[in-house]
Design a protein around this nucleic acid. Sequence first.
DNA 1: TTCATACTTCGATCATAGCCGAAGCATCGG
DNA 2: CCGATGCTTCGGCTATGATCGAAGTATGAA
Lengths: 227, 227
Amino acid sequence: MKEGPIIASVAALLGDPARANILTALMDGRALTVSELAEAAGVTLQTTSGHLSKLEAANLLSAEKQGRHRYYRLSGPDVAEVLEALMGLAQRTGATRVRTGPKDMALRSARTCYDHLAGERGVALLRGAQRQGLLEDGQDLALTDKGHAFFTAFGIDVAALEKGRRPVCRACLDWSERRNHLGGSLGAAVLSRMIEKQWVRREAGRVLTFTCEGADGFDATFGAEAR
Amino acid sequence: MKEGPIIASVAALLGDPARANILTALMDGRALTVSELAEAAGVTLQTTSGHLSKLEAANLLSAEKQGRHRYYRLSGPDVAEVLEALMGLAQRTGATRVRTGPKDMALRSARTCYDHLAGERGVALLRGAQRQGLLEDGQDLALTDKGHAFFTAFGIDVAALEKGRRPVCRACLDWSERRNHLGGSLGAAVLSRMIEKQWVRREAGRVLTFTCEGADGFDATFGAEAR
DNA sequence: TTCATACTTCGATCATAGCCGAAGCATCGG
DNA sequence: CCGATGCTTCGGCTATGATCGAAGTATGAA
């Protein structure tokens, strides 16, 4: 960020992939914690903290402390509008994602998002479940009777989940795929069941790797898609 | 530009000072040559050429060849709109210019803009002249009777300038100061007279350095401002 | 108090890309 | 044909800043 017209410094802030992820994650106006944003950005907590400081210093974000959490939100609707405008321009000009970081590739395939499955596998899971009529998405995502039976058979105590305060099904926007994946207590339960079944194991960071049997089982259960 | 949401790559393009200068220079919709844009951006021709290639590849600019010139223009009004939106946001959030490149410092102080004086000195020249009633700016910038006499006394054949096709006075937006400086044939004449008087000499590139006497003479003639 | 969580700061590493000098094309004028 | 002008390409230098590990600070819970 050297000398230049006033737009350069702002645009440079939006131009970093990690920061862009942070900002798009906040576009709905909600406030998120640093950890959540780190998750969304795909970088560590320290890095995220640094980015957030810059964005706050530039008045693009405003922060609010609550207990030991720090909530960040967009500093105003105009920020979201500019992001929208940029998205439109990017679309029209055919901007495409370029190059992939070495570490990101594993992350894109499968990773944890809080406590549930995200990445290509996460998106496939939700799509498969919807295609099989296990979930229906009206206003919110909801479990069908068929789905109730299905996940119970999968080894999940669905009835217990439904008693909890946490929503059972949540559609969660996947930052690498830009499509929804399955969150909520059901999403969390599915992931821990998959780990129990040794379909998948946690690696360093948030990376998840599927075993051979796991990949087969996953495809058989949630439908391998021809794509 | 690694992996990331689509806005990141576009924003990164806008985030470089040189490119931002190029884009803002094109915001009025006109088409400019590579050399003119290099001037506006404050970097060399080669560097500009590289930037323009990137901007064209990203479909933000479109190029047109005409003889040995290459004219670049914004690829559409939506680009200008996004730039406008960014300017608005930058304004609201109080973006301020940060840090200065090593070479840019000399450029900011005084440099040539085509054939006239630009940078801090250029802006000071125009302001001084206006304050002393040498120029008046209605619709266009115009020389007053007092100014006519003044610049003639300064050693410029003002009458000859007025016969030429080129406008005598032109307000030219200074990219580093973002205020107007004096262009036109009068601006060119003032600079060459100042070189004749050995107030200033050309360095490599577009840098101009004032001699000690030159700086004193300049301040005495056009008014050292307390700032 | 002690431990755990949430976050920040520091320090070092490393890749990116902006920049320029030099040399190479292309076009125009003579 | 030559030289001049406008622009592009190449290669190397350098600075910036994104990133992460490790250590430090706040807050809450036990």
